[in-house]
Write a protein that binds this DNA or RNA. Sequence first.
DNA 1: AATTGTGCCAACCGCTCTAGC
DNA 2: CGCTAGAGCGGTTGGCACAAT
Length: 404
Amino acid sequence: MGRSPCCDKVGLKKGPWTPEEDQKLLAYIEEYGHGSWRALPAKAGLQRCGKSCRLRWTNYLRPDIKRGKFSLQEEQTIIQLHALLGNRWSAIATHLPKRTDNEIKNYWNTHLKKRLMKMGIDPVTHKPKTDALGSGSCNPKDAANLSHMAQWESARLEAEARLVRESNLVTNPLQHQLGSSSSSTTTQLINKPATGAPPRPLPLPCLDVLKAWQGAWTKRTRENCTASFPGMMDMDDLESPTSTLNFPDSSFPVQTVGFGENAVRALEFSKSTVLTCESSHGWKLNQQHQHQHVNMPELKERLDNNTAALHDMPLSYGCTDGNAWFIDSFRTGNDQNVSPLPPISNIMEGLADMFAYNSTAGEQNSSVVAAESSDNGTFEENKSYWNSILNNLVNTSSSGSPVF
DNA sequence: AATTGTGCCAACCGCTCTAGC
DNA sequence: CGCTAGAGCGGTTGGCACAAT
């Protein structure tokens, strides 16, 4: 057996917390901070182990916790991130402001998982149960590519989570100290479910859910944007169904240049590990090139060397000297006029724009170019599929259907 | 009214990771 | 480099509330 539980010590209380205990813990932390959790109970006059105090604070007493019913957007975010990350609740929680990993985990297990199952969706694979084993729809090459995609997306999300923590530390050291799992970032979804198309089997596992939703989001928002480089936009306009960071308190140095058809969006973090850019042609560039300064000639050379790979759709990437370089073509075009993968020359122009802009925004400590691509059919099918699922969730949850 | 079943969620358990020595 | 304490994390459980019988 493992080590003995920390709460086995004689005299330490277990079980539900009383209001008096909550008050003691709250008062102590508000005055002194938590410091060492192990030492805290004695100082605060609590007959609890430090771990119990930490959990009580982290999951319940922290002032920046939002309690109550999950919103539709939160539900969608959980579903999408779970499709991408699996049971990595802490990573998911970093994209749901004011929600704890424990709360999200409980909500998934008691609500969302059951809904998906009753809809015939495997909550583990996020695929229709009949296709859960992946028979037929995925060839080995796709599976391998998707594995790469998942790794990169996962790494990117983790990096974002780290950034959030770092930003919390910088902008609110006390708050950071008091609750490390708090988050100032959010994944906000603008969901306008499309038609009531029936769920359809995914041609590929749903590892690209976030991008699918970003496509829908982009389509929607582009209608409200001017044709070219409308200038700096409010953060509210950046709300994206992807994991793209959003900082409600505007405490993070996020720069935006334009939006929509001909816009370039850039997120640049002064001490960041990830840089994400989107171009006017519907492809995305994620950089995460550890501890190296990115410069355009180097990038251009790398991409030139991988031109063939870039055009080897549906999923291509170049990988040189241990750094991966991806071009992400997630298609921002509308349904009738979907942008094709831009010619390499256009990619280079876009990159030039991005880095010309970002070179003025500060040093890029680190970067990776990570960009995945999905062919047009895959994207549209993903979008349709998830629209369908989420639409069903909306209908069933709002109508109080006995099904759920 | 009593018993049983079910859903929900706070809290616990134990493993893993990491920083400090 | 190995050890240790502290913290983080995901899985599981206990117990309460409510519904069904």
